[in-house]
Simulated assay, not measured.
Amino acid sequence: MLVGGGNTVFAYVFTVAVYYLFQAKFHLVLITVFTNVVCITVSFFSNKFLVFKSKSHWFLEYLRCYVVYGGSTLLGIAGLWLLVSQFGVPFWIAQAGLMVISVVFSYVGHRKFTFKSAR
């Protein structure tokens, strides 16, 4: 729970900070793609070494990690674009709401797929 909570707080703060720092220069979709790559990588390594203590090959697990995050990432980016650009919801509120869904989905996916061989 501590690692997952830390990853979630990091992802939220990092994404919101990057958005507000660079929203005038870069499109929301580009910002969220970039922040997702950084956040997924941080989450992957913290889960691999601190939660699941996996000894499997890191690159294959990293690819599986992207499979798990892929669906929620695409939905998250589309959801942010829709909520922020089309409905005028403040970015920080939209990001918080969409993260709730992502946290549950990613934990189950990592436990049953990404780091399955570690069990």
Score class of each variant (00 low, 15 high):
residue 79 G to Q: 08
residue 73 T to I: 13
residue 80 L to R: 05
residue 77 I to N: 08
residue 87 F to P: 01
residue 89 V to R: 02
residue 27 H to E: 13
residue 103 V to Y: 11
residue 100 V to K: 02
residue 47 N to R: 10
residue 7 N to P: 02
residue 83 L to K: 06
residue 79 G to A: 10
residue 116 K to I: 07
residue 66 Y to T: 00
residue 35 T to F: 13
residue 87 F to T: 10
residue 36 N to W: 14
residue 61 E to D: 04
residue 14 F to D: 04
residue 69 Y to V: 02
residue 83 L to M: 14
residue 98 L to S: 02
residue 105 F to R: 00
residue 76 G to R: 10
residue 40 I to M: 14
residue 19 Y to K: 03
residue 45 F to I: 12
residue 20 Y to K: 10
residue 47 N to T: 11
residue 77 I to C: 07
residue 11 A to S: 14
residue 60 L to S: 08
residue 102 S to K: 01
residue 81 W to K: 13
residue 89 V to A: 04
residue 104 V to F: 13
residue 23 Q to P: 00
residue 64 R to P: 01
residue 77 I to R: 09
residue 109 G to V: 03
residue 82 L to W: 15
residue 50 L to R: 05
residue 10 F to C: 08
residue 113 F to L: 09
residue 103 V to S: 04
residue 5 G to T: 04
residue 96 A to Y: 02
residue 43 S to G: 15
residue 106 S to I: 11
residue 98 L to P: 01
residue 33 V to G: 11
residue 38 V to D: 13
residue 112 K to A: 04
residue 34 F to D: 06
residue 95 Q to H: 08
residue 25 K to Q: 15
residue 100 V to A: 12
residue 55 K to D: 15
residue 98 L to Y: 03
residue 109 G to K: 04
residue 69 Y to T: 00
residue 116 K to F: 07
residue 118 A to D: 01
residue 62 Y to Q: 01
residue 119 R to F: 02
residue 62 Y to L: 09
residue 15 T to L: 06
residue 20 Y to V: 10
residue 67 V to S: 00
residue 47 N to E: 13
residue 110 H to E: 05
residue 51 V to A: 11
residue 92 W to D: 07
residue 25 K to E: 10
residue 83 L to C: 11
residue 63 L to G: 01
residue 102 S to I: 10
residue 101 I to Y: 14
residue 104 V to S: 12
residue 88 G to L: 04
residue 115 F to Y: 09
residue 28 L to Y: 06
residue 46 S to Q: 15
residue 16 V to F: 07
residue 76 G to Q: 09
residue 11 A to D: 11
residue 99 M to T: 07
residue 82 L to H: 08
residue 64 R to S: 05
residue 37 V to Q: 10
residue 11 A to K: 06
residue 58 W to A: 13
residue 57 H to A: 12
residue 96 A to E: 02
residue 59 F to L: 14
residue 17 A to S: 15
residue 44 F to W: 11
residue 46 S to Y: 15
residue 33 V to E: 12
